[in-house]
Design a protein around this nucleic acid. Structure first.
Length: 853
RNA sequence: GCGGGCGUGGCGAAAUUGGUAGACGCGCCAGAUUUAGGUUCUGGUAUCCCAAAGAUGUGGGGGUUCAAGUCCCUCCGCCCGCACCA
């Protein structure tokens, strides 16, 4: 027997697949299509285990659907613009483009060793002008349609580097490189009007029935449609100035005790001009940056403006106006009224500032003495302390409030979305240039379409922070397309989510002169199965849904939803280790001796930490390249799929890989007894073929049925269990005295088919040895014969008063009465009945019998 | 802070969606093969109990039901996302 060298075997088959060009997808009208897509990687330099998991999952689906007779599209490409390339440029003096291209080459080579069934002819990289030129055109089309517009918004500003910082680059309120306290700055930037589709994006979630419920919920909450009212509060002493607030609880207006403005509210800025204290407070708030998580986690603080607002309903009542760090400028109107009795955050603030707490909603089972202590009351109830609204329930109260506001002119019904328009401008080099020319006389002028693409210049200095496009001596100097006067190119580039919002469309027609052709999109779209990390549950997936609608509206295609099916995978985790000094250690630096972990080098003790997401900083990483070189891709893929269900986190363990490897080797050894089998061989379920052959036939049919069912429901770990059971059955048959060489080889050939989505290389080898035609990668999935799946006798549990007391064997679909009689006749059952007569007997056919007395 | 999720043997998990808890794998134990180690093969393995019988058991507490890992309430722990990381 030849020893098993996975790399040789795998290279051989990868070469044959490539030579045979068997994974190229061609538009084939009439054949049912299936589009499988995994989220394309950012070319960071090396693949990591998360990629291996993602692509192994996708390849199972692609290979299985091919076996089921679908015309499968399974492409791969590179999400190639982004911040890390610029960081590499600053840190290592390498051009972002060079860095990215080298990374792509390295990662492509790594991916190819996995034996994934991609159509590499459709590969794309978003940093190529051939790709991004189309999104410049899209942007201009959006602009014409009013879907793109310009407005001011806030960014994190590093005052030392004079650059805009990403949230990731703000650490504890300081720039990550400069260490300087972050400021907020207002910049004029481009936005895409995603909120125009708010209702549609929300309503269509219901139809995404092959998406995980959790993702649908998250998108729903993210869009966050709320009904309520806008209320205008006139500032005392300034008749014509009012602060407008948005509230979902107009019913609690009689409980209002203050008004709070966002630190970015125009009125706050106005006050800061004359009040240094206010200016200081706003500056302090600015240090929290733009991250909503940071803002909302910060200690609640506010300062009094000295102004009072007039309560629109209560004569003579005035509410103090504060500027508070917990009010977001981006939501509603950037101002709220505080009702401490019925909002915990308002209550905390009111207690800190000694403001009145006026309960206006009481629970149904309380009376008008209901009062508030440390906890705001947010539950259902009846209004009180509310003049004419007292006695109404909350919903009726809201209606009454809105009617009162509308008739007095102090407010109006209002629907607000939490969703904000998408700011796409980035002050960075490594992105798609925004095709706009700024002219001192004509303003922002679109670059004429015949001048597209606006290519990134290569000759840039990337050795210092900031946008090199701003520093380029000539690139931005152009003539205005309208007046031919001297003008400047826009030096901002697009958010990289722009690229990932339509790449799945480009794959359908990757060499088209346009972004894609409507025909190709009509054939291949939507993506039937999309697979990727749950971290994209909202942003990327929502932007893509928006893009489809926007592109449809400007005439590119006619389809609203890009992804019919979605599967979100869990993270790949590994135990982390630290030495005595708290330094992180790589897994290969430690080993287990007895119950303790020690350093391999000198045997000193090691702290074994938690099992957590693989990350470079904690060093708990395992390099896929090393694993594939050692065990082979078949083993690595099989292990990735075998232990945890795909949506859950997976712990990478050495022992687990070893186990998968043993299983592959077991199959390898078995494969040496395989000889070409008769083409028309099959197990006849209507003939007497003997015990051993029947058992084998049953195992084969159960496996092909079970694996197909479990692939459809993403229970890949169960698929691996089916494979183990099948291999055990084939081994037993092989070892049995009545073994038949032809039957054995046939069984192995069938195994090859059902194994091929998981470990395709060894499957090809077995297929070839058993005389299979062509590639197993192109073979059809075996139909399961129901006759071989049916059991004759089934074991049924018998409970007495809900406790399991016996198991009885019954014929399948045995009549209820017979089952009941047999159960009651059972010795153990009789013993537990202790002579009592059953009051009730529940018979669940083929499952359980419960005798109640 | 807000939004979402997860929690079952020593470990990864399974449970036909309210019907026999622990399939399959890892680990461990015993035996066989082997000069030995490794490999391989066979058997065992939720806990308590010598065994049987029995009892207990799905993060904690409570509830609904003939029947709860599954449904409801509540508490605890861990993880993910929060709009300029991708």
């Amino acid at each position: 027997m030849a020893s098993f060298i996975p790399s040789e075997l795998e290279q051989k088959w990868q070469q044959k697949w490539e030579d045979g060009d068997i994974f190229s997808a061609r538009t084939a009208d009439g054949q049912k299509k299936y589009y499988v897509l995994e989220m394309f990687p950012y070319p960071s330099g090396r693949i990591h285990m998360g990629h291996v998991r993602n692509y192994a999952l996708g390849d199972v689906v692609a290979r299985f659907k091919r076996a089921m007779g679908f015309n499968v599209l399974h492409p791969m490409g590179w999400d190639a613009f982004g911040l890390p390339a610029e960081n590499a440029a600053i840190e290592r003096g390498i051009h972002p483009g060079t860095w990215t291209t080298e990374n792509i080459a390295a990662m492509r080579a790594q991916l190819k060793t996995m034996g994934l069934s991609y159509d590499w002819g459709r590969e794309l990289a978003t940093c190529m002008p051939d790709y991004y030129r189309h999104e410049q055109k899209m942007f201009l089309d959006f602009l014409k349609k009013g879907l793109a517009y310009r407005k001011e918004s806030w960014v994190n500003w590093d005052p030392v580097e004079n650059t805009v910082l990403a949230n990731e680059q703000v650490v504890d309120g300081r720039g990550w490189r400069s260490g300087a306290p972050v400021e907020r700055r207002r910049l004029s930037q481009w936005f895409l009007a995603i909120t125009r589709y708010g209702d549609e994006l929300l309503n269509a979630i219901e139809g995404l029935d092959r998406w995980p419920d959790k993702v649908r919920l998250m998108q729903q909450n993210w869009i966050g449609r709320s009904q309520g009212a806008e209320v205008d509060f006139v500032i005392d002493g300034k008749k014509d100035s009012a602060v407008t607030v948005f509230t979902t609880r107009p019913d609690t207006l009689y409980g209002a005790s203050f008004i709070a403005l966002s630190p970015q509210h125009p009125l706050a800025a106005e006050l800061a001009e004359t009040k240094p204290q206010m200016a200081d407070f706003i500056a302090e708030c600015a240090q929290l940056g733009t991250s909503e998580a940071n803002i909302e986690r910060a200690e609640k603080k506010g300062i009094f403006t000295g102004l009072y607002a007039v309560h629109p309903l209560i004569d003579g009542q005035k509410l103090p106006v504060y500027v508070a760090n917990f009010v977001l400028m981006d939501y509603g109107t950037g101002a709220v009224f505080g009702c401490p009795a019925h909002d915990q955050r308002d209550l905390d603030f009111a207690r800190a500032c000694s403001l009145p707490v006026i309960p206006v909603v009481r629970p149904h089972d309380s009376d008008d003495n209901f009062s508030i202590e440390d906890e705001a009351y947010t539950g259902p109830g009846i209004l009180f302390n509310s003049a004419g609204w007292s006695g109404l329930d909350i919903e009726a109260g809201k209606e009454a409030a809105i009617n009162a506001l509308e008739s007095s002119g102090a407010g109006r019904r209002k629907i607000t979305f939490r969703l904000r328009d998408w700011g796409v401008s980035r002050q960075r080099y490594w992105g798609c240039p925004i095709p706009i020319i700024h002219c001192p006389t004509c303003g922002a002028v679109p670059v004429p379409e015949e001048q597209l693409p606006v290519c990134l210049p290569d000759d840039v200095e990337c050795d210092s922070p900031g946008n090199p496009l701003d520093r380029h001596p000539t690139w931005s100097d152009v003539a205005c397309p309208q007046c031919a006067g001297a003008a400047k190119r826009e030096t901002d580039t697009f958010d990289t989510f722009f690229e990932s919002s339509w790449y799945f469309l480009r794959y359908t027609d990757p060499h088209a002169d346009t972004a894609f052709s409507a025909q190709a999109a009509a054939y291949w779209m939507p993506v039937d199965q999309y697979i990727g990390g749950v971290e994209h549950a909202v942003l990327h997936l929502l932007y893509s849904r928006f893009f489809m609608r926007a592109l449809s509206d400007v005439g590119y295609l006619d389809l609203a939803e890009p992804f019919a099916g979605l599967m979100t995978q869990g993270m790949v985790c590994h135990q982390s280790f630290r030495d005595e000094n708290g330094n992180w250690l790589f897994p290969e630096e430690v080993e287990k001796r007895g119950d303790n972990w020690v350093l391999k080098s000198d045997g000193r003790g090691v702290h074994a930490g938690r099992v957590e997401k693989m990350s470079k900083s904690k060093r708990n990483v395992v390099d896929p390249e090393h694993i594939i070189a050692t065990y082979g891709a078949d083993t690595a893929r099989l292990f990735m799929l075998s232990d945890s269900p795909p949506e859950r986190d997976l712990e990478w363990t050495e022992a687990g890989v070893e186990g998968a490897h043993r299983f592959i080797q077991k199959i390898w050894k078995l494969s040496w007894s395989v000889t070409p089998c008769a083409r028309d061989f099959y197990f006849d379920s209507s003939a007497e073929i003997g015990e051993a052959a029947s058992t084998l036939a049953r195992a084969l049919h159960k496996a092909s049925h079970g694996i197909a069912t479990d692939i459809e429901r993403f229970a890949f770990n169960r698929c691996v269990a089916h494979l183990h059971i099948l291999v055990t059955a084939i081994t037993d048959y092989h070892n049995s005295p009545s073994t038949d060489k032809n039957a054995f080889s046939y069984a192995m050939q069938q195994l090859a088919i059902v194994l091929s989505p998981f470990s395709p290389h060894i499957a090809e080898e077995i297929w070839q040895r058993s005389g299979g035609e062509g590639f197993v990668s192109q073979a059809g999935w075996p139909d399961a014969d129901p006759a071989w799946l049916k059991e004759d006798v089934i074991e049924v549990a018998v409970q007495v008063n809900g406790k399991m007391r016996a198991r009885i064997s019954l014929a399948v679909d045995c009549p209820r009465e017979d089952a009941e009689q047999i159960a009651l006749g059972d010795e153990a059952v009789q013993k537990h009945l202790g002579g009592q007569t059953p009051k009730r007997v529940i018979v669940v056919p083929n499952r359980i019998i419960n005798i109640v007395c």
